[in-house]
Write a protein that binds this DNA or RNA. Structure first.
Lengths: 353, 353
DNA sequence: GCACGTTGCTCAAACGTTTGAGCAGGCAAA
DNA sequence: TTTGCCTGCTCAAACGTTTGAGCAACGTGC
């Protein structure tokens, strides 16, 4: 006869409620959890049971309930990009949005933050039956974790990413649209000499995609971005800037991989005495915004996090509920968010005034 | 014979692994989950079982495992203050910190975000056995949820708050120290006319405590804060400011309930043409900081969120593991974070230069 | 008086693990 | 040969629910 070594002894169970109400456990279950009206229980019994449950402060054990029902109403959220070193406004905001969106759809969110585990260990946890589905943020296209998940039956939706085999549904912002928007805004504003502060290649799903898109759209308008003006984010922003701006014909605008980088660039400009946006316009990506006034607001492009989160949760919910049609790869439109960091280049201003 | 109506049919179970390895389920369990060395399994069998588990991509069902073991290694995090309307940097940062801290201690965090439920429903969820313990953020002192939780055996730690009956352990920043620090900084900097932008009384645990503390510390130095200079945050910042500043002898500094409010005040000052910090110094609370340069950085006082989160998780962990000593009400020291919004009043400047 | 339907409950199996107890076989000491 | 102790496995109960099937009691229609 196994013995419970732990606490937990004190939780009220269905049986105790049953005893107090003078009925069987089945009846209690039918009253408290049965689909309304499906089973016929007399009003009298129903009341007695409810009374007893309340008196005992009964809270059904969700582990066992889920075990029987095959549903936990929990979604796992996993991001490979959560670092503890620095506050990441983007991730914080997104995960918060997911928690909200989950709540709206009746799911609670289980945030998995245990780093330093092998993909296999992470897989075992994620596929452990605790969650009905998994939201996974921006995994690398060939992430070994995805390989393991492919063989499982766990519903997975990838957020801002895509696996190389196109096995999983995904929700992402429309990168094409975003880059097109950035290109056209830059051109409209009068910029022809444009630099790019790119991501390091391991940082994201489409480290090169965005760059190529942007260069393509610019090229279509006759604007060429020289290779030396495409700098990886791994480099120090300050030195890149002083480097670029010391050229005889320096760029008048720079696109930054994401807003965090853009704000880093803005800070460097400040300390280097580069005036924004006259000497250099800065445009970012993500559409991050927060309630405080910054010296400069980075112009940017992005999708609202609540929308993204809601779309992801909704899609995952459909898969959980048995959606079995063609693979869904939803793409959400982005919008341009104006900022003080984008303006006509000083050459243009001169000719205008 | 009950029937499973759901998906979930495809998950590999212990039995299937056992069959493939040619042993009993018990043996598989002993190999994969048994306390190391406690049971004697031959190396040969051990290897066969591991092989089989890997081949089948076996992931143990954590619902059942937890059911047996009486531990889930999950902590619930519940905050009554999560609103979906606006991004709340404080909450986002704190919950992120908790998720990290949980991960460090081997816990995953279950974020409960389902609003519009009654205390009883929330209680039932939280005490449903999914989590080993509960972290609850800043509940009101007489929150009915706390009343329900008191009767349960679920370990609870209150973060930044305290129940009126002093039943639950808590972790919070040292408010006394914080207010003392603010008072002394204001005085050191030369301020004698000080206004207070307070919380609305239902917003927080100690809506009045902080105010009284601050007034007390100031009074000890002979500085009196008139009642008309203590304004609730419910009022519009702009009108409060123009009101205060139009007095013949206006305040030279204002303490704001939290940093978010402080930044609101800073923005209003901007639009009202009140110069910071010459005309008005602004000091907040929370020590919020983020990687971007704002026009003004609010001087503030607060505790590092990672420290707070770690302390809370650690304390909860101790309670989960059976700590049974005197009630723990941990208080963490706060530190002053300098900002551009605090400086000597213009009168003083004049006399100094 | 019998077949049959309805009402209102209970029985017991099942979900997938963990783990104390049990057991077969080998071996050594008495 | 008996006793006792290892070693290396298996048995079966238990965790707390849910739910199809079963069943007693009571009409109701023929």
């Amino acid at each position: 006869m196994p013995e419970i070594t732990d606490r937990q002894t004190e939780r009220t169970t269905l049986h105790e409620v049953a005893v107090l109400a003078g009925v069987s456990a089945s009846t209690v279950s039918l009253v408290l959890a049965g689909k309304a009206g499906h089973r016929r229980i007399s009003e009298d019994t129903r009341a007695r049971v409810k009374r007893a449950a309340e008196d005992l402060n009964y809270a059904p054990n969700l582990l066992t309930r889920s075990l029987r029902r095959g549903r936990t109403h929990i979604l796992s959220f996993f991001s490979a990009f959560r670092h503890r070193e620095e506050a990441d406004l983007y991730m914080e905001s997104l995960s918060s949005a997911i928690e909200m969106a989950g709540g709206e759809s009746g799911y609670d969110i289980l945030v998995h933050c245990n780093f330093n585990r092998s993909p296999r260990e992470i897989y075992q946890f994620l596929n452990g039956g605790l969650a009905d589905g998994l939201l996974i943020f921006a995994p690398r296209a060939k992430d070994p974790l995805l390989e393991l998940l492919r063989k499982s039956s766990l519903p997975v939706v990838i957020l801002n990413g895509r696996d190389s085999n196109r096995m999983f549904p995904s929700v992402a912002d429309d990168v094409q649209m975003g880059m097109k928007l950035i290109a056209s805004r830059l051109i409209e504003t009068g910029h022809r000499r444009i630099a790019i502060f790119a991501a390091t290649s391991d940082e994201s799903r489409d480290a090169t995609t965005r760059i190529n898109l942007l260069r393509g759209y610019l090229a279509a308008e006759g604007i060429n971005v020289p290779d030396r003006w495409v700098r990886p984010a791994a480099e120090d922003a300050r030195s890149v800037l002083s480097d670029l701006m010391s050229e005889p014909d320096p760029p008048t605008a720079i696109y930054c991989w994401h807003d965090r980088l853009a704000y880093g660039v803005l800070a460097s400009c400040e300390s280097l005495g580069i005036s924004i946006p006259d000497q250099l316009s800065v445009i970012g990506y993500d559409g991050l915004h927060w309630p405080f006034q910054t010296r400069h607001v980075a112009a940017s492009v992005g999708v609202n996090h609540s929308c993204l989160a809601r779309a992801a949760v909704k899609l995952l919910d459909e898969y959980i509920n048995g959606y079995d049609g063609p693979l869904r790869e939803d793409v959400l439109p982005v919008s341009f968010s104006a900022g003080t960091s984008l303006g006509p280049p000083s050459s243009l201003q001169r000719s205008n005034s």
